[in-house]
Simulated assay, not measured.
Amino acid sequence: MTFLKITGLRKRFGALEILKGIDLELEKGGFLVLVGPSGCGKSTLLNTIAGLETITEGDIRVEERSIADLHPSKRDIAMVFQSYALYPNMTVAGNIAFGMEMRGVPAAERKQAIDKVAKVLQIGHLLERKPSQLSGGQRQRVAMGRALVRDPKLFLFDEPLSNLDAKLRVDMRTEIKRLHQTTGKTIVYVTHDQIEAMTLATKIAVMRDGEVQQFGTPAEIYNNPANLFVADFMGSPAMNLLAGTIVNEQNGLAVSLQRPGGEAMKLPVSPAMMSLTTYANRNVIFGIRPEALTDPEGADRNAQSVSENDCLIDVVEPAGSDTFAVTKLGGKEVVARLRADARIRAGETARLAFNLDKAVFFDPESQKRIA
């Protein structure tokens, strides 16, 4: 059942159009992540849902009821800000209870609500401390507690982890995921970090220049990117995107990729991609993720189409659980993700396995996916 529905949403500041016709739907209990580079309009979109920004055109509905013209206080929405926005002179308990106190909730009910939220967020031992005595992660938990205690219909998070260090961000991601699983609340979350988007979301909207480039599950966004922007933006390391040409070979279609100082590498096209017949002898962009390009021993045994080729390795980057190797194809550097114990050295030729089941193709002019 659709819980949040955004239809034809536009936002202009004078002649400048920030949001250009946004259409999104989120089910009850879903976790929608708005992701994209700085300036793409994701925070503006979140602010229109919260009521902090008016909309120019379109509608926002929660449970079939339009909230587009409602005052923020009437929307039953709680927002967690990047800056935490805690009152420095109040204790943790005071910060969490402040909104309830302003609404005249009796003291006994406030205490019960504080204790319940503190247990969920594991901050019971912090209730008498002031914000200045807390770490960044603890402050973020308090900010979440202040929102959670209201028991709203919808939670909004505006880049809540961007002020935290790398390890704490990972820990807090887990906390937010746990919060969603335990409460079942509907959440809209803004981030520029695609790892956060992939790990937290049930649905992702990838935004660019005020438009949604693709909307779908994390698996759909990652495995079936709609265009070159989504393919390049989602994934760490990013997808390898190489200039190639579709050619006819004796056994069917292949993609031809230029190699430095040598003959072209020809990789067979999966039979499932026969739509590429119309691109025979035409240029395409060939996309393959680093994990689909590996040492032969680490290749997916269930793959239907794997092609092994010798590649000159330029750089080797050990990364603990993986080893990354850089080679050159199609005039660009290509990253392969190998097993940690793969025997590979910079400056030497190594055998690499291309899992072509995972390959994708884009039109270089329209930049849209074609197979």
Rank of each mutant, 00 (worst) to 15 (best):
R10T: 12
F13D: 10
I18F: 07
I18N: 04
G29N: 08
L32Q: 11
C40E: 11
A50W: 13
D59C: 09
S66T: 12
D69Q: 09
P72E: 07
I77D: 00
M79R: 03
S83L: 11
N89H: 13
T91K: 06
V105K: 00
A107V: 10
K116L: 07
G124K: 09
G137I: 07
A143D: 01
A147I: 04
L156E: 02
L156K: 07
D165S: 03
L168V: 02
L168M: 09
D171N: 15
R173E: 04
H180M: 03
V190K: 02
D193A: 09
I195H: 03
T199S: 02
L200E: 03
G210H: 08
G210Q: 08
Q213V: 03
G216S: 12
N223T: 11
G235S: 09
L241M: 14
L242K: 10
L242M: 09
A243M: 10
N248L: 11
Q258L: 15
Q258T: 12
K266N: 15
P268Q: 13
N283W: 14
V284E: 09
G287N: 04
P296S: 11
G298W: 08
S305D: 13
V306E: 14
N309W: 15
D314E: 14
A325P: 01
T327I: 05
T327L: 14
K332W: 05
R339Q: 15
R345D: 12
T349P: 09
A350I: 02
A359V: 14
A359M: 14
V360S: 11
F361P: 01
F362P: 11
S366W: 00
A371I: 00
